[in-house]
Simulated assay, not measured.
Amino acid sequence: MDPKTILAPLLEPLEAGSDPARALAHAERLADRFDAHLDVVGIGCDHTQVAYYYAGATALVQQETHDEARRLAEQIEASARASLSSSALRWSVESAVGQMAGLAALISARARIADLVVMPAPYGEGRGPEYETMVEAALFDGQAPVLVVPATPEASPRPRRAVVAWNQSPEAMAAIRRSLPLLVGADLVNIAVIDPPRHGAERSDPGGALSQMLTRHGLRCEISVLARTLPRVSDVISRHVSDIGADLLVMGAYGHSRFREAILGGATRDMLENPPVPVFMAR
């Protein structure tokens, strides 16, 4: 089913060439492709530590930081409206204020009624913890697929070549199923299997059953069985994406716990630190 509601949450006012501007522009192109409604929400994040006592000034500090977050949200809303003012799309823009403790609930409430969430990469220079919170809230509590847009030249809403990272996990299968509308029309879908288990269910034909399923959807598929020749799985995937000239990566999100990935690392977190192309994730 094609996405008909695309959510683009913003944490910064739009500036030409900025990562949020790239993400919103990509969301516009996707909305145009699928004749979808584009919902934009400008979020002012209040970083007040409400559990602390501010030497008698608690109420004053909280009001001041809330007002600052409100002004930021209104600036983001105004910049988004200006950006979309000449668009022929169906769109809406609103603003909201949330403290860090409530940011996940704010995002998940909107993600639940969206078919796709589009946002910039959550890690990197100038990225606070609120970006990571938004991605995780959309995926876990909102149960929505997320498309992470990298800080690279403009990406096409109609990928020509796509890489599907396949490890037989439920998360990978969920991402593949929900990415089908984006994959339709691609010249090639490459199923990348990294070090398949010798005694797994697909030991004789890694990726073969998935290729058959996708072919029945009218997709042209090929399978690449890759050795883990680099320390991180994400590095192997990134190199493969570059080698075949892919312009979309589909992968399951957080096959391990978020805590484990935060401490020890994992393919999801590592990929989101430096996504080579737009990354479609679901779980």
Rank of each mutant, 00 (worst) to 15 (best):
L106Q: 07
R178L: 12
R158K: 15
S179I: 03
T65G: 00
H47M: 05
S211W: 00
F259E: 08
D195F: 03
E154A: 14
E94R: 14
T5A: 11
R239E: 12
S179M: 04
E94S: 15
P150N: 13
S242E: 14
D35P: 00
T152C: 06
A55Y: 08
G207I: 08
A69H: 12
G265R: 02
P181A: 07
E12Q: 15
E273Q: 14
A80G: 13
D115R: 01
F140V: 15
A78Q: 14
S87L: 12
P3S: 07
R269D: 00
D39N: 11
D235C: 00
P197H: 00
L188C: 06
L183H: 07
A165C: 13
G102L: 10
V233P: 01
P145G: 10
M119E: 03
M173R: 10
A174R: 15
M119D: 03
L116D: 09
A16D: 11
P159V: 11
I113M: 13
R232N: 02
L230T: 02
E125V: 12
I263Q: 11
Q99H: 11
S169L: 00
A21L: 04
R110Y: 10
I237R: 07
S179A: 15
L30G: 01
R258Y: 10
R216C: 01
T229S: 15
D46M: 00
R232G: 01
A137T: 04
L14E: 12
R161W: 02
